[in-house]
Amino acid sequence: MIIVTTEFVPGKEVKELKGFVRGSTVQTKHIGKDILAGLKTIVGGEITEYTEMMDEARQKAIGRMVDDAKAKGANAIIGMRLETSAVMQNASEIIAYGTGVFVE
């Protein structure tokens, strides 16, 4: 699956518009990771536990978006974006979205 943030795929021609595609996941903090993160705030630096958690969440959201695109017959996604929002305290949603297209 070709995924681009641009409105076109270089060297390819959009033959068919398949429509809006998306994938999302909601991730919550793990109590063990919260404890480690709390300790990290004392000494400073990157909170790798959260970085890893959010990276996994982005990959899940993108994977689900790709599944949605494939189900609609797309072989590429243009205009892909990622967004995050707080759903509730200690939980965040990651959504990946774009336009599914068939390119040649």
Rank of each mutant, 00 (worst) to 15 (best):
M1N: 08
I2Q: 03
I2C: 04
I3M: 12
V4L: 12
V4F: 11
V9N: 01
V9H: 03
V9P: 00
P10R: 14
P10W: 01
G11S: 10
G11E: 09
G11A: 13
E13F: 06
E13L: 06
E13G: 04
E13M: 11
V14E: 01
V14D: 00
V14I: 15
V14T: 04
K15I: 09
E16R: 06
E16L: 06
E16M: 02
K18C: 05
K18L: 05
K18D: 01
K18V: 13
K18W: 01
G19A: 02
F20V: 07
V21C: 04
V21Q: 00
V21R: 00
S24N: 12
V26F: 01
V26Q: 00
V26H: 02
Q27D: 02
T28Y: 05
T28A: 05
K29L: 13
H30K: 15
H30R: 10
G32R: 08
G32S: 04
K33P: 05
K33R: 13
D34T: 05
I35G: 11
I35Y: 14
I35W: 13
I35T: 15
A37S: 12
A37W: 08
G38I: 15
L39I: 14
L39F: 15
T41D: 15
T41P: 07
T41F: 11
T41S: 11
V43K: 14
V43F: 12
G44R: 15
G44S: 15
G45I: 12
E46I: 09
E46F: 07
E46N: 10
I47S: 05
T48M: 11
E49H: 14
E49I: 09
E49T: 14
E49V: 15
T51W: 03
E52S: 14
E52M: 15
E52K: 13
E52A: 15
D55H: 14
D55R: 13
E56K: 14
E56F: 10
R58L: 11
R58F: 09
R58H: 09
I62Y: 03
G63S: 13
R64L: 14
M65Q: 05
V66K: 11
D67V: 10
D67S: 09
D67M: 06
D68F: 10
D68G: 10
D68P: 11
K70N: 06
A71R: 14
A71K: 12
A71C: 06
K72S: 10
K72P: 08
K72Y: 12
G73P: 02
A74S: 08
N75Q: 03
A76D: 00
I77P: 00
I77Q: 00
I78D: 00
G79A: 09
G79N: 06
M80Q: 08
R81F: 07
R81A: 11
R81D: 13
L82D: 02
E83C: 04
T84I: 05
T84C: 10
S85L: 11
S85V: 10
A86L: 13
V87T: 15
M88L: 11
M88W: 08
M88R: 15
Q89W: 12
N90G: 10
N90H: 09
N90L: 13
A91I: 02
I95C: 05
A96C: 12
Y97E: 05
T99G: 04
T99F: 06
T99M: 04
T99W: 03
G100Q: 00
G100W: 00
G100F: 01
F102K: 08
V103R: 00
E104M: 04
E104H: 06
